[in-house]
């Protein structure tokens, strides 16, 4: 049921993604705040299929030169391309940085035993500013292969970016900055170099009192 309803292909799917900050108050208590989150949901057949977005509408928000989004899409396979619009939850006061941890956790599952490489590129005005590349090995659990990138430390650039964003007095100003801030994640099979997933992330600030929200789209070329 999840095919066409979440980020995935017959080979692999994203099960969970979250970017968070966590502060240890004392040995037994933590405060955790989720900036963005895609949960461990199992969509049913009742749920609507993902809407699609023409990838050409967002090319310039991501690297355009060699190895850029256009080149990736031309190489395919085209069913591996997704767009996530996040409404990030920035409703938190960061007063004391002591014991603060900024991290990203993501989890994928597949039917095949692979070693995956995950590249995450942070882009400003479509230009890559930092890239993190992680390699993850499969763990067999409940009849499928799991890949968990657990509590990967957020880079300094992102932490500073969040701090600067928080200093802006109005949400429309934050959204105006976020219009030129994007993240591109590319998951490949390390051994075959096959593209498994390519997820483009764009952002706005959440106005909800219920935390981060998101919409997922398929990227297509009509």
């Amino acid at each position: 049921a999840w095919q066409g309803r979440c980020i995935g292909t017959p080979k692999i799917r994203l099960v969970e993604f979250s970017a968070f900050m966590e502060q240890q108050r004392d040995p037994e208590s933590y405060n955790k705040h989720l900036f963005v989150h895609i949960g461990q949901s199992s969509p049913s057949y009742n749920e609507a299929l993902l809407e699609s977005v023409d990838i050409r509408q967002i090319y310039d928000k991501f690297p355009e030169k060699k190895g850029g989004l256009k080149e990736l899409f031309e190489k395919g396979p085209s069913n591996t391309f997704f767009l996530v619009k996040f409404w990030a939850d920035l409703s938190i006061n960061i007063q004391d940085e002591a014991g603060m941890f900024y991290g990203v956790t993501s989890q994928y599952e597949s039917t095949e035993n692979m070693t995956i490489t995950c590249s995450s590129k942070v882009c400003s005005f479509g230009k890559q500013v930092v890239e993190k590349v992680e390699t993850e090995y499969a763990r067999f659990e409940n009849g499928r292969f799991l890949y968990r990138i657990h509590r990967s430390p957020m880079c300094e650039y992102l932490i500073n970016f969040i701090h600067k964003l928080k200093q802006l007095p109005e949400k429309y100003m934050m959204n105006s900055v976020l219009e030129n801030f994007t993240i591109l994640q590319v998951v490949t099979n390390r051994d075959t170099q096959e593209l498994l997933l390519c997820v483009a992330y764009v952002f706005e600030v959440s106005t909800s009192e219920h935390g981060a929200q998101h919409h997922i789209y398929r990227l297509v070329k009509d």
Binding site: E51, V53, D54, Q57, I58, D60, K85, W87, F125, G126, E179, N180, V202, E204, S206, T207, S208, H210, G211, Q213, H214, H215, Y217
Partner: peptide, 24 residues
């Protein structure tokens, strides 16, 4: 160039792109 970008609001994107989902 970065200064002549078309604003996202003026691009062909689904209506839902501008509608923050309500938590269920």
């Amino acid at each position: 160039g970065r200064h002549d970008q078309v604003p996202m609001r003026k691009r062909q994107l689904p209506a839902s792109f501008w509608e923050e989902p309500r938590p269920t």
